[in-house]
Nucleic acid binder design. Structure first.
Lengths: 324, 324
DNA sequence: CTTCATTAGGTAACCGGTTACACATTCAAT
DNA sequence: ATTGAATGTGTAACCGGTTACCTAATGAAG
């Protein structure tokens, strides 16, 4: 690898001049510029970003910490963040925390040491203190860490209300709910939305709520349990799509027809929902937009530009397919 | 952010000593070490990795270039690579090339400038020259760039043969094939495997082959076309799972029963296959192992340790579910 | 009492860039 | 002819670490 010194030597100028050519900064004579450019292309010289970062204290890299990239929601989010970052000239370091706070803190340390300019994170366990200790812009996505910190979330409660009301409107008489992971804010909010709609119904009891863990396996178990206890259930609102899919699988196994006997609504709007048969009715989040907004906000914060708005609560949309 | 100088000052020693404590290298007295450690924790000092990288010419970061993280195959691969990298103390910069060679080269440049230690890439367009120009270890995964370069692929042809023979054994009389993207080596190999099995059949003609592009949309169109021209088809081998799923969707639409009237086999073994109804019979690649092996090989190459083996062709496994 | 190996720790060069500052030249305006 | 602004380029400090090299003290062996 040739360095700026090699270029300088070959062009017969000082490194400062080469740097000026490189950055198009300061005065450089016509001839000199040409000589330098010739040397650069002849040596196929590429400036060393590490050296640059060291001086600038800016690495043009950001960290993205998600629980698990295998979760389709975060896959799409990651893609959105990476696209936007790439367009703006940033690199993305990918980190899978598995929702484990030890791993999370480990990644935070590593990112800090690598001079990343900022972080986008989806975490339940992170505290406001930890964020402050990072001493760099951190945007929280999908889950709110603390009021006042840059955050991008969606209308979880409204979405849940819409989902539940939609089931009611479709004629469902007994609507159950598969909850998301306990302790996760968005799961609580979706639960609240559900409860708000059904709490006043005369048939309602807490036994229509079962616990899932935002994944397939737990949802399958929860649904089996639910339908055993309440065979009369004719509508299920699952707190995310993966769990809704689990519920569909169970219904299939039990020979319950969807949507004739049982209607199911999910939440998230992951790409997977269109691949299934039946396709899933869901409350779609603008996932790509979430990632894009987060990245744009982060860039604003990193550039110490005045950032107008550091809290976004994006709208969700009911998308009707044939699971209802 | 406090630097090594602050620590040195606080502990009343030179920066060299602090560095020795940090790296546990060279001689450091008991008391001195304690003083330094106290200063470190008091200042919450974390060494600057950028400065370190500059000197070491090693950034402890690798690049991962995939066509699209949204493709479940690459999602799982990315997860495997990141897990392994993280365990070995490396960061992963994620790059989505969209199979676009311009984007690819752009990422390669950026990665090189960022002093990444190595690259794992899945590309059709990359040439051996480009790889050589990178002047750093590059491991090619899923697709072979050129003999001699570090590569990790699977037994595509054998897998395709197994899939096709399996359909035959299941009693299928007319077996069609949905091809993968033209120009992609693994698509060619899978096609060859299919052809090897059916070429000698008396019913066989090239019209049983339709072109897909490794995605849902093209597969749906291709399958519609296929089944219109050849309603007698009772077995389909799709070159990947996503396309197989597309075929299943079409069958559903046309009221064709799976597996009674039509059997379908995919290729890849993405997690999605277990989520569907019916679950998909597929030729499963050891995706996680692919990523793991690639990362381990890369670390070997980066550490200029003698790497025994730079070419892996991993086995695939037929997983029978209820789409056949 | 030397002598030399071992331990301890400081000084400064180096990694590859950027940029403040100094110095020189050119040229238009007075 | 004088002056000052604009232009062009080099020198060297700096970013925050690592490490080669040097000096000094200690202690065991001869």
């Amino acid at each position: 690898m040739s360095s700026i010194k090699d270029v300088a030597k070959m062009a017969g100028v000082s490194v400062a001049t080469v740097s000026r050519v490189l950055n198009d900064k300061g005065y450089v004579g016509r001839d000199t510029r040409e000589k330098v450019e010739k040397a650069i292309s002849e040596l196929n010289y590429k400036p060393n970003e590490v050296a640059r970062s060291l001086f600038k204290k800016q690495s043009s890299t950001i960290g993205l910490i998600v629980p698990d990239i295998m979760n389709p929601f975060f896959t799409e989010l990651a893609r959105a963040v990476e696209d936007t970052a790439s367009n703006l000239g940033y690199n993305v370091i990918l980190c899978n925390s598995d929702g484990n706070s030890k791993k999370e803190q480990g990644y935070l340390d590593v990112l800090q040491q690598n001079y990343v300019n900022g972080i986008i994170i989806s975490s339940n366990t992170l505290t406001a203190e930890q964020v402050k200790a990072m001493n760099m812009p951190v945007v929280s996505i999908d889950r709110e860490i603390s009021r006042g910190l840059p955050t991008i979330v969606v209308e979880n409660k409204n979405g849940a209300v819409a989902a539940t009301q939609f089931l009611k409107k479709k004629g469902c008489k007994r609507i159950a709910h598969i909850r998301g992971t306990h302790g996760v804010v968005n799961a609580e909010e979706r639960f609240e939305g559900y409860k708000e709609v059904v709490a006043a119904e005369e048939w309602y009891s807490d036994s229509y709520i079962v616990d899932g863990d935002y994944d397939m396996q737990t949802s399958v178990e929860a649904t089996l349990d639910l339908l055993k206890r309440h065979p009369e259930v004719d509508g299920i609102f699952a707190a995310n799509d993966i769990m809704a899919i689990g519920a569909i699988k169970v219904a299939h196994q039990l020979g319950i027809k969807i949507p004739e006997q049982l209607s199911i609504v999910g939440f998230d709007g992951i790409a997977l929902t269109n691949v299934l048969t039946p396709e899933l009715t869901t409350i779609a989040q603008p996932i790509y937009e979430l990632g894009e907004t987060a990245m744009n906000m982060l860039v604003g914060l990193m550039g110490q530009q005045p950032v107008h708005e550091t809290y976004y609560k994006l709208e969700v949309t009911l998308i009707e397919k044939n699971s209802t």
